[in-house]
């Protein structure tokens, strides 16, 4: 275990409608065993001691599954590692003397709430448009009544692993949410349970995605590289395919 002395350039913004700016902080004696968020905890303790308001940032489970943590770290969503959330990123990834630039997710659909906290409720609204199977509680048949080929179930699970953090949007040069939407559409398209609403689902979710102000996909694959849950770009292709099919066959 060793210790790092760091320079942090952090985006500070008091409220949604306030002007923001970068502030530079020195932080010494950071253990390489710390997680990135623990490093920010230490920064905040230092700020409180100096009577400066701590940096606001979203986080919760701190084990990479809730999707609440975010942060653009040196220009990369969730930092430099593959398949990693910010809370799983450890300081051993950095070198003594490094300068780290920390910014909030940037997208028109993700307005800044404060400092590094953004509002990602647009993603919830996209799900509300159809990211589910409309089944009322109590009416389900026996779970084993409908066999699902293992490879389909596995692929559906790969897509369903999305944690909804928004890194795909943050990393995309167009702030596109196609990977997020593609993951949910794919999960449902791959399972027999999703079939009855297949057409309406993809049309409605894409319409909502556009209405929320996300950009279009330019197939740069930045989303895939930034995704902490390893959601594959093939899900975007499937989304395109589903959409194509739906456009041609939808009754409306």
């Amino acid at each position: 275990m060793s210790e790092l002395n760091l320079t942090l350039k952090v985006w500070r913004q008091a409220a949604h409608d306030a002007e923001g700016e970068f502030k530079t902080y020195r932080l010494n004696g950071v253990s390489t065993e710390m997680s990135f968020l623990e490093m920010l905890d230490v920064l905040n303790e230092q700020l409180i001691a100096e009577n400066e308001e701590p940096v606001a940032f979203d986080h919760d489970c701190r084990e990479g599954i809730c999707g609440m943590c975010s942060l653009m770290i040196n220009g990369q969503a969730h930092g430099p590692d593959n398949e990693t959330t910010t809370c799983q990123l450890h300081m051993r990834r950095f070198r003594d003397g490094d300068t780290i630039v920390i910014e909030p997710w940037r997208a028109r659909a993700f307005p800044v709430v404060r400092d590094l906290v953004v509002d990602r409720s647009a993603l919830d609204r996209v799900i509300a448009a159809g990211g589910y199977v409309s089944v009322n509680c109590g009416s389900a048949q026996d779970a084993n009544a409908l066999p699902v080929p293992k490879q389909d179930a596995d692929k559906a699970m790969d897509a369903a692993a999305c944690i909804g953090c928004g890194a795909c949007v943050a990393a995309c040069k167009n702030a596109s949410a196609m990977l997020f939407v593609g993951a949910k559409v794919s999960q449902m398209a791959l399972l027999p349970q999703g079939k009855p609403e297949r057409t309406a689902r993809v049309l409605n979710m894409v319409a909502r995605m556009d209405a929320e102000g996300f950009g279009a996909c330019t197939n740069t694959a930045e989303c895939e590289a930034a995704c902490p849950a390893a959601i594959s770009l093939s899900n975007i292709a499937r989304l395109n395919r589903e959409y194509f099919k739906a456009v041609l066959t939808s009754p409306r």
């Binding site: 970068f22 220009g75 028109r108």
Partner: peptide, 12 residues
């Protein structure tokens, strides 16, 4: 769709 640009952006 990205109204505010990043200070620093690096491809992953």
């Amino acid at each position: 769709a990205r109204d505010v640009r990043y200070e620093k952006k690096k491809s992953k």
